[in-house]
Nucleic acid binder design. Structure first.
Length: 487
RNA sequence: CGGGGUGUGGCGCAGUCCGGUUAGCGUACCUGGUUUGGGACCAGGGGGUCGCAGGUUCGAAUCCUGCCACCCCGACCA
């Protein structure tokens, strides 16, 4: 165990905050709930960005950028949307400072005519712009994505999982038909599933949100739900079918072929830096972060071992040969030739940072024409000959293994139950996903939450619905839904 | 917003109850040397308005008053 990190079994909260700090992901900032994302943490986020951005462009989306500040009046236009965000908005009311009694104060004379809201999400700004951009069916579909920061004044915050300011991408699309907008909503959900499962190696359940968990202003909200190590669920991404709600609120109409005007159909969707939190919570251990190879900024780190200057040269020369050979295969390889630290220190350091594969090479290896490989996912050390080494294949295996391990854990912690006492028992003991029947009413959902703290994470999409009786009320239920305690 | 706690070199803390030399320890940092297969060692060095403001006192990190910040636990959220 790392001496820097509190063990997870002892204190999961301390484990998490120790890890994000000591793995070099974040530093604390002087603003409550906000985080400084360190270069190492940001490089992981940049990898997520690059992979997703490419995918979005391949599927016809374009990036644009909209203002951080939104006039208060824009919020009045979509009422359910306002209600959803009103309690967590930061508002700009002044534009000037002044000095008084040697202190910096807000100049009362600089109060704005209309207050500006720091965006909690950009639907209102973007739909206000779409009114100007969209005239004809020829302007559709409009497929826009934005990489941005947003502000949500949450009561309790944690780095990545729930921060006051966070980074995300938000897609906002407009379509001529309902079907097309719905298809877009679901296509995006699949792009997210692909990103999260195949790149981040985190298994997810995709589904529909119930009415009470639905995005403010949406007709239907789809989501990705993942299970964390502690048995709690975390929503990793959402895709909303907006119907014509925002088009009506912002008067966005288009002329059809026959000349008649109709409101456009919309979707919006996003994933955020919360994905970073999920990576930590799903794969991390008491030694630190564990990164899936596809995401790791450094996939392989080589640590040279030597006893004198002559050996140092010899070992480093051989290490560089491996480095350039692997780099030619397209791998991201780092040679840690700092003389400042001993090998043991470096081993611990790279484990903390979650590098998937560590290679050690020393005088004994030179003699035997071998190297030592250390798999971060299994904490397994193996010695292989220079001819037998297949780093590319090993990284694939690590990627695969990480997903499988997480998948098995998720399955192991998914319980099907028809008994409310058992339901409560499982929740209080080990947590996890609970697949149970529900009568479809918001009242029952709220009752269950009050009695067990569990919420309906989603109505899963991939199943053959079977009828049953609600676990709480015994009333008719059309299918099982997924309950869990959530972050 | 309710309950609990903490503010002292970059980080982690001791000292505060019971005021009194130059505010201490670990770690990190800088210099030099020895080291290097699982977080090395020795020697030397730099770094603090003790959260802020006011008060009591010959004297305040320590006592009093007010304020501020942050963390943890419960009700909202990607």
């Amino acid at each position: 165990m790392s001496r820097l990190i509190t063990s997870r079994s002892k204190d999961p909260n301390a484990w998490y905050s120790d890890l994000v700090k000591h793995a070099g992901l974040v530093s604390k900032s002087s603003v409550r709930g906000c985080m400084v994302i360190n270069p190492y943490g940001f490089s992981i986020w940049e990898r997520i960005q690059q992979i997703l951005d490419l995918r979005l462009k391949e599927t016809g989306h374009q990036n644009a950028y909209f203002p951080l500040m939104i006039p208060l009046s824009h919020f009045e236009k979509e009422l359910s949307h306002v209600e959803g965000f009103a309690k967590e908005c930061a508002v700009v009311t002044h534009h000037r400072l002044c000095e008084r009694d040697k202190q910096i104060k807000i100049d009362p004379a600089s109060e704005l005519e209309e207050a500006l809201v720091l965006r909690p999400t950009s639907e209102t700004t973007i739909w206000n712009t779409y009114r100007d951009w969209i005239q004809s069916y020829r302007d559709l579909p409009l497929l826009i994505n934005q990489w941005a920061n947003v502000i949500r004044w949450e009561m309790r915050t944690r780095p990545f999982l729930r921060s006051t300011e966070f980074l995300w991408q938000e897609g906002h699309t407009a379509h001529a038909t309902q079907e097309e907008a719905q298809t877009e909503t679901l296509d995006l959900l699949d792009i997210y599933v692909d990103l999260v499962e195949n790149t981040l190696a985190i298994p997810v359940v995709k589904g529909i949100k119930t009415e009470s968990e639905r995005f403010a202003g949406a007709v239907e909200t789809y989501c990705l739900e993942a299970l964390m190590h502690d048995g709690k669920a975390l929503q990793l991404g959402t895709s909303h079918f907006l119907g014509q709600n925002f088009a009506k609120a912002f008067d966005v109409k288009f002329a059809k072929q026959d000349g008649r005007l109709e409101y456009v159909w919309g979707s919006s969707w996003g994933v955020s830096t919360r994905l970073m939190g999920a990576l930590i919570m799903v794969h991390g251990d008491d030694k630190g972060l564990v990164l899936p190879p596809k995401l790791a900024p450094q996939q392989v780190v080589i640590v040279p071992i030597y006893y004198d200057e002559e050996q140092r040269k010899e070992v480093c020369t051989q290490a560089q040969r491996f480095q350039s050979a692997w780099e030619k295969q397209g791998l991201r390889v780092h040679l840690d030739d700092r003389d400042l630290h001993k090998p043991g220190w470096k081993f611990a350091e790279w484990e903390l940072k979650g590098v998937p594969l560590r290679v050690a090479i020393g005088p004994a290896d030179i003699k035997n024409q071998s190297i030592e490989l250390f798999r971060r996912d299994r904490l397994e050390k193996i010695s292989v000959s220079w001819e037998g080494v297949n780093v590319l294949g090993l990284l694939d295996e690590i990627q695969h293994n990480m997903f499988q391990t997480a998948k098995e854990r998720q399955q192991k912690h998914t319980h099907i139950t028809d008994d409310y006492d058992e339901f409560k028992e499982i929740l209080s003991q080990k947590g996890g996903f609970l697949s149970a029947h529900w009568d479809g009413t918001t009242e029952t959902e709220a009752q269950i939450q009050q009695e067990t703290q569990a919420t309906i994470r989603c109505i899963p999409l991939s199943q053959n619905p079977k009828e049953g009786k609600c676990i709480r009320t015994q009333k008719k239920s059309s299918q099982r839904v997924l309950f869990a305690k959530a972050y």
